[in-house]
Design a protein around this nucleic acid. Sequence first.
RNA 1: GCGCCCGUAGCUCAAUGGAUAGAGCACUCGCCUUCUAAGCGAGCGGUUGCAGGUUCGACCCCUGCCGGGCGCGCCA
Length: 561
Amino acid sequence: MKQHIADLINTALTTLIEDGTLPADTQPKIMVENTRDKSHGDFASNIALTLAKAARTNPRELSQKICAALPASDNVEKTEIAGPGFINFFVSDASTGNLIKVILQEKHNYGRNSDGAGRKVQVEFVSANPTGPLHIGHGRGAAVGDCLCRLMDANGWDVTREFYYNDAGQQINNLALSVQARCKGLNPDHESWPADGYRGDYIVELAESFMRGDTVKSADQSFTGTKDADDLDGIRHFAVAYLRHEQDLDLKAFGVNFDVYFLESSLYTEGKVEAAVKTLIDNGFTYEDGGALWLRTTDFGDDKDRVMRKTDGGYTYFVPDVAYHLDKWQRGFDTVINEQGADHHSTITRVRAGLQALQAEIPKGWPDYVLHQMVTVMRGGEEVKISKRAGSYLTLRDLIDEVGQDATRYFLAARKSDSHLNFDIDLARSESADNPVYYIQYAHARVCSIFRKLAENDLQWDETIGIDALGHLELEAEKRLVVNLGRYPEIVKRAAANRAPNQVANYLYELASDFHTFYNSEKTLVEDTDLRNARLTLAVAVRQVLANGLDLLGVSAPELM
RNA sequence: GCGCCCGUAGCUCAAUGGAUAGAGCACUCGCCUUCUAAGCGAGCGGUUGCAGGUUCGACCCCUGCCGGGCGCGCCA
């Protein structure tokens, strides 16, 4: 509809250019917007405001000329000029009929588009170190990342979900030492407890499992505990497999599935780290100082140079990171989005600098990043304190067990990822209209409920009558619903373009709200056959869009609540 | 000190550079017992942190402050 109106305006502008009202070199950027206020019609364009200067006239006068030059359209009932020179468009009944028809025909495809044209996008998210269970911050990453994937898919992209495991390096050593200490019966208060050891209770369980000789399986490896507390290497492998398995379970409970689990260790075993280092050296961006090898990241906007190879010979974490992203590039992804916690913000400049220094013709701003801020958990009006050091943990699985998958996903995805998030457990658990997830899902269930009632009354929905009778929908609430249903495809585009799943959540809340208002104000199952079928048809369209949108969030659309 | 993010109603949050900045909760006042619910409706509530700038038009873009969060390792 927006495009249609833009086309009408474009035709009008062409006419005005021909008759000399507008200069021949006019390059109009036609913008058509949804109106907020119903009295401003259904759509509005600011075109006269932007072109008034070029036309050497005032916006209102120009808008009158544009309106006069607009070609007739079945979809437009009338136009009005308002305010400083906005042109307001009122859509016709024919247009709403067309929209509802499209929704009923396209069903779960309504709102999807092929803008991505099958191009490859990779989204890397969660990427938690296998040193402990997933906490709520990972949960936010999982929810936002997975919704982004669903959004990109809805926009016609070929999506790969990827999880990067830091299974090499110092943190894994710490983990192994911590487990070993537990295997030997030490606790964190003991004098020979490892300096930066992990203190959580899960380490105890892990050690017990190792000493029992359990076999643990993760996505692509399995390992059996050797029961030997001195076998540090065995403990390391076992611990990583064990915790990866735990994380797999957490993610499964959250309904998040990855296509690729990429192991940091593979970058070493396959020589990709060494190859990247060699290229960086050959390209002349490195130097030795103080026994370490440095990368001149300041050549690419960093505020100081970074150590690549430590004096102990090991590489710092960002070297395999660079090798990893080169690998992503070579795998042919047009777009790569890294979803991660904002506390890792400083890696962005480093990774991009490293990629530039490789001189592999990788674009400067590549890859994309979506960062999420911290999550505060509230229960009973008080903050639930999470201390990693003390080992007190609110894990993602705890949260899912307590409030359910749907509410957890919704709450974690419904806020702008740039902002800190307040997770109110009591609200997420409540089964009332105060809870936005419940409220949206209930709108969906309510449509289903109307149809159950319809069957009880031995009546049937006649879609053909309904569509023909859509002109009977004259109430404010009904028209609002129709207009909002029409907005959905644009929401899908915008949310993906802005990398902002929360915009889907906001939209759904508004749509649900409009539906509840409609439901509360008018009976659907009225005597009048035409009106009844028209309302049922509208309700089906609403249910469809709610279901489509909830699917983008990974939240279920129940038929009965 | 430097970098990034945030600052909108009492609280939690919305708002493609557009018209009178919107919801929910809380509060106040009404209504109601229903196609699925103790629900529905209305009202109250704002100098969009402050000060400039760009623009026909700024919560949004730019600059400088103030306040909060995160990061500033040869940890990841």
